[in-house]
Design a protein around this nucleic acid. Structure first.
Lengths: 202, 202
DNA sequence: CACGATCTGTACCGAGCGGTAGACTGGGGC
DNA sequence: GCCCCAGTCTACCGCTCGGTACAGATCGTG
């Protein structure tokens, strides 16, 4: 791993996780292809050769930044799934997502969406990486719902995969809205409607 | 307008609307920034100077292609709103969208989403154009719902803006899913859940 | 059938892209 | 105190980008 700190030689003048967060912000705001190396190095406060020595390539940098985004941002929404009931888990997931999508200490929206749904053919891998990240989150939702089904916490015959997909799709749509300027209240009102509809309570 | 056909001079060797549809497909698949002029001209079957003489610039070409996308694709979903009841209108909107997002005669997903939610700073206008298109569709949904509210076709006190936002957000999320490979049935199952939740029927 | 207007095709422009070579810097080990 | 080596910095690479100049082709008109 590049995170092991060699004891010999000139020490690194920057913190790897710090500059990854800064890189994530640039990708988040401008997308993978819209984030030029000049913009990245400028925001990260390091020079091109340092970036390449540390991360290897623009794509690898993106992967690392995206992984860190998952640890720091997506993790909060996933943690919200740990509620005693399925209804509470979904509500917490949707509400904490809406909150995170409109927080002001980082760009609006979601890196998994803004990063680049569509790319030039040579960057198609990036779109795949993003899709895989979203799919992982959807799987986490689905697993929480499956557990609820086993516990009798969902109506019989509820399609947990479809419900997980519905929840994720709504969150992704909220991300699109947030990037276009929707407020947290706007999104919460949409969540209200979604929850009213779920009728998970018996 | 560039659509007026001058009677003198060498005649144009291509049909404007036809090549616009072809350009829209490239933007749809690769996004605005991911669609190179080489890819565009190659798909459209015309040369660069013809493109610039006809459309002016890449951005203007995109605007024209996006406008045509609205006329040919988005118009179908908007037409679906013309159902006798609010519930039927929303169901038709969601189902026809899910169908269009997964049709096989064009790229999966939606140009309004794939085109470029995030762009480099110099292409920020493109993101704005896309957002404006989505907002226009959301307004159309909201107007249909307002009409329903006046007609007593919605529960009292229903927040029509929030409901329109919920419907659009779900559709946008479905577009993200469709671009990642979701099937029409996948999306329809999500629509089922959304509709169950709406409880628009009294 | 020559003229002028319009479109097409080749070949090119400067700029910015992602990525790198090589000289310089500065801290630990002996 | 010297060496070594990782990290930094300037300056550059080839390539592709969006956009265009200019010559040749093709039409209606006199």
């Amino acid at each position: 791993m590049s995170s092991e700190t060699p004891s010999i030689g000139r020490p690194r003048a920057f913190d790897e996780e710090t500059v990854l967060d800064l890189a994530a912000e640039v990708f988040w705001r401008h997308g993978y292809e819209g984030a030029s190396l000049s913009a990245l190095t400028s925001a990260m406060g390091i020079n091109r050769p340092s970036l390449y020595a540390t991360f290897g390539s623009k794509e690898q940098l993106f992967q690392r930044a995206f992984a860190r985004y998952h640890e720091t941002q997506v993790a909060r929404a996933r943690a919200a799934l740990e509620q005693p009931t399925a209804y509470a888990a979904i509500e917490a997931f949707l509400r904490s997502s809406a909150h995170g999508l409109t927080a002001t200490d980082h760009p609006a929206g979601c890196l998994s969406i803004q990063g680049g749904l569509a790319c030039s053919p040579e960057n198609a891998r990036v779109s795949k990486i993003l899709a895989a990240g979203r799919a992982a989150t959807e799987t986490a939702v689905e697993e929480r719902l499956s557990r609820a089904a086993k516990e009798g916490d969902l109506p019989d015959g509820m399609d947990t995969r479809a419900l997980a997909r519905f929840v994720m799709a709504l969150t992704e749509g909220h991300a699109v809205h947030a990037a276009a300027g929707a407020s947290c209240d706007d999104l919460q009102a949409s969540v209200d409607i979604a929850l009213r509809a779920l009728a998970l309570r018996t």
